[in-house]
Every structure is written in C-alpha cells, then in structure tokens.
C-alpha cells in the first residue's frame, strides 16, 4: 500500500503521519487520532455530523481525503475549548439546551463557529440558512438557533474572533467579503 507523508496541524498540535492515499480525513481523525467528536452520519456530505474546520472553514471530513490536508490546519470539537474554558458558542449551547442526544452537536457548533467568523452578527434567517445543511434527528432546531445567536453575542462582547483556531487565507477572504472589504 502506498503511504503518503502528511504533516497536518490538528487542534493546534502538529502531526507527522503517513497515510494511505485513499483514507478519508474522517477516518484519520477518529481511528488514528482518537477524535470521536467527528462523527459519520451519512458519509456522503449531506448531514453535517462530520463537520470540521479546515483552515477555519467548515467542511465535510467524510468527503475530504486526508492527504489533501497537507500543511493545513484542522479543528475538531475537541479543539475549541481554551484553558479548560468552553468556547462561547459551546457555552451558549449548554445554556440554551441546544442539544438532546448530542450526536449532531459537534457539527452544529463547528458550523456555527464558521458562520460567526464570516458574519459576527447573523440574523435568524442567516443562522437558519447556514446551519440548514446540518441535520438533527432530535430536531431541537429553535434552541440551537437561539444558542448560536447567544454565542454570537458572547463572541462580540469578548471582542475577539469567534475562535482562537488558526485562520487560513480562505477564511480570512470570506470574512473580508462579508465586510465588503474586497472589490
């Protein structure tokens, strides 16, 4: 089996790995790095339970080949808390009871963090639209939307980026577009 060298930053730590070329990022994160917050629901890009931030942008780990993350930075739900303190969006999900069984929750929260990077003050419609591709079988959507709005408020109060995770050029560009800095 051809193994491909892979250096990738996961939750802030650099990993030097060697992976089969057809391994999905989802399997790498779960089976080799033990990050069980990344979950396989549909396996075909439709449900959002496998969401991770790649250079700060939410993508499907089930549709990403691990080797294509070379030199990039991956954030999973395990990497959001800082110094034992939950990320403001995580805290807001707790306070608003934004989950029931919790299966979809990591994907929901990471997607919300991705949204707030682009758009720190989203409307209800914008939250609904951005999170529309994350499915919850328990269907507690209104609580989640409230949680995202509360998380957004917290992030704004804290005055910082919605997350301390490294931001790649793509995330920076999308954010700049949101502010109309480009063009």
């Amino acid at each position: 089996m051809n193994r491909n060298p892979l250096t990738v930053s996961v939750n802030g730590a650099e990993h030097v790995l060697s992976v089969p070329g057809d391994r999905r990022l989802l399997d790498l994160l779960r089976d080799e790095l033990g990050l069980m917050g990344v979950r396989e629901g549909c396996g075909v890009g439709a449900c959002g339970t496998c969401t991770v931030l790649l250079d700060g942008v939410p993508v499907n780990a089930c549709l990403t080949l691990a080797v294509t993350t070379r030199g990039r930075s991956v954030t999973t739900i395990e990497g959001l808390a800082r110094d034992g303190e939950l990320h403001p969006v995580q805290q807001a999900f707790l306070e608003e009871r934004g989950f029931q069984c919790g299966f979809c929750t990591p994907g929901m929260i990471l997607t919300a963090v991705g949204l707030l990077r682009e758009n720190p003050s989203p409307t209800v419609e914008e939250v609904t639209d951005y999170l529309g591709g994350n499915l919850c079988r328990c269907a507690g959507y209104p609580d989640m939307i409230r949680a995202v709005l509360r998380g957004a408020e917290r992030c704004r109060e804290a005055g910082g980026r919605p997350s301390a995770t490294p931001e790649g050029p793509e995330a920076a560009r999308l954010r700049a577009m949101g502010k109309g800095e480009e063009g």
């Binding site: 890009g45 439709a46 499907n60 549709l63 997607t111 991705g114 591709g133 994350n134």
Partner: peptide, 9 residues
C-alpha cells in the same frame, strides 16, 4: 447548491 460545507469545498 447543496449545503455550505460542500460549497466551501
């Protein structure tokens, strides 16, 4: 098209 994660990729 699809969802935002697919469109990001």
């Amino acid at each position: 098209v699809a969802n935002v994660r697919v469109r990001h990729t």
